[in-house]
Amino acid sequence: MNNHKITHLKELEAESIYVLREAAAQFERPVILFSGGKDSIVVTHLAHKAFYPARLPFPLLHIDTGHNFQETLDYRDALVERLGAQLIVGSVQESIDKGRVKEETGYYASRNKLQTVTLLDTIEQHHFDAAIGGARRDEEKARAKERFFSHRDEFGQWNPKNQRPELWSIYNGKKAMGEHFRVFPISNWTEMDVWQYIYLEQIPMPSLYFTHQREVFERDGQWLAAEPCIPRKPTEQVVSKQVRCRTIGDITCTGLTLSTAHSLEDIIEEIAASRVTERGSRADDKRSETAMEDRKKAGYF
């Protein structure tokens, strides 16, 4: 028997490409959820590899909270251009203006939760039957329970107590009208795997991931960007620091890390030495012990 030694990154890449090809084969209108963060960038890169030399068989969907770093939007537009992909933007501001959601108020106001409504509305409007996301099981304890093909009912809800069995690599994407699937090709990747893969493949990354000087302020032991969309308490002083993003989301919930990492090698070193998880810098997970599960049940990413 031929036993070929294969590295963990090659094995993970092969698995993810397999999942993406299954998504393209089993669904009529799949879409990639693109946030501008490293995970959705890697998923898009893998999809590009999976179907080369054909173009991506999926459009990219960006749910725009209106509170994005400009760098994220610039990167997104350049990527779409380079891949010749189709971009669809779902606007949270529009959902607010239409009265579909009500904006939170106060110092901790965030549009993170509101995104769910915009996402489900956009999925319905475009008749998407599968939304491909960059969620990873190592990120968070509710995500640790996700299937590769994760069923959503007609209300977009996840039922974690009664998920379909998922055997071997046989994915069952069958559904009734109005239901859809979430597909997570990089389920089995860790944060370290993602950065090592970016390094090996030399994938260009948004500048936010590397160290830069930024106006920031401290809240609950975290550094946040001093931007108008986060109201500051009178005691919160703005200072200038050398920081980088460890995750990229909406500005209001993206914690910045004090860092001098200039290169992908520096970032890998930093993560290897890190004693805190990446979601430790996400304000949206800290709302309760099962904050992520509660949002996921409602149809969150």
Partner: peptide, 11 residues
Amino acid sequence: DSTRGYLDMEL
């Protein structure tokens, strides 16, 4: 080198 070593591990 310690980090580079992590690039080619088995799973």
